[in-house]
Computed example of a mutant assay.
Amino acid sequence: MKGENFLFGRYKFIEAIKTALEGYPPRDERCKSANWIGVHKALMAIKDVEGMLRSLDPQYYDILMKYIYRGLSTGNRTTCDQCLKIHEKLTEKAGFGCILRSLADTVNTV
């Protein structure tokens, strides 16, 4: 994620998430790992989930849902709690199709 450190340094977590989503799918495993680290860090810092979702282009909802499921797969309680909170709001905004599309796409993983 180019500029990730700058964005985190300025507490612009929503912009960091947008940057990662715009760079999807990552080119290789190293980029995929770097994107996950950045998205995870930003997701954990988000306080206004609804505001974040309003600021995102709907075309990125499915990709965000993939990152949410990756966060849930960590088993870390704090990460899972935050991901479930975001999952609920994202599902309300994007509908159940977002869940199905993110789970069905096994080619472009995060």
Rank of each mutant, 00 (worst) to 15 (best):
I63P: 03
L64D: 01
L64H: 03
L64C: 06
M65V: 02
M65Q: 08
K66Y: 06
K66A: 02
K66R: 08
Y67I: 01
Y67A: 04
I68N: 04
I68P: 03
Y69H: 12
Y69F: 14
Y69V: 02
R70Y: 03
G71D: 05
L72Y: 03
L72R: 04
L72A: 05
L72I: 06
L72Q: 07
S73N: 10
S73L: 08
T74Y: 06
G75V: 00
G75W: 05
G75Q: 03
N76S: 09
R77P: 02
R77L: 14
R77I: 14
T78N: 10
T78M: 11
T79R: 06
T79Q: 11
T79S: 13
T79D: 11
C80N: 12
C80R: 14
C80P: 00
D81G: 00
D81M: 11
Q82H: 01
C83W: 07
C83L: 05
C83I: 00
C83V: 07
L84P: 02
K85H: 13
K85M: 10
I86D: 08
I86R: 08
H87K: 12
E88V: 13
E88P: 04
E88M: 14
K89L: 12
L90A: 01
L90V: 08
L90H: 04
T91H: 10
T91D: 12
T91N: 09
E92P: 09
K93E: 15
A94W: 09
A94Q: 12
G95T: 12
G95Q: 14
G95L: 10
F96R: 15
G97W: 06
C98S: 09
I99Q: 11
I99C: 08
L100E: 11
L100S: 09
L100G: 10
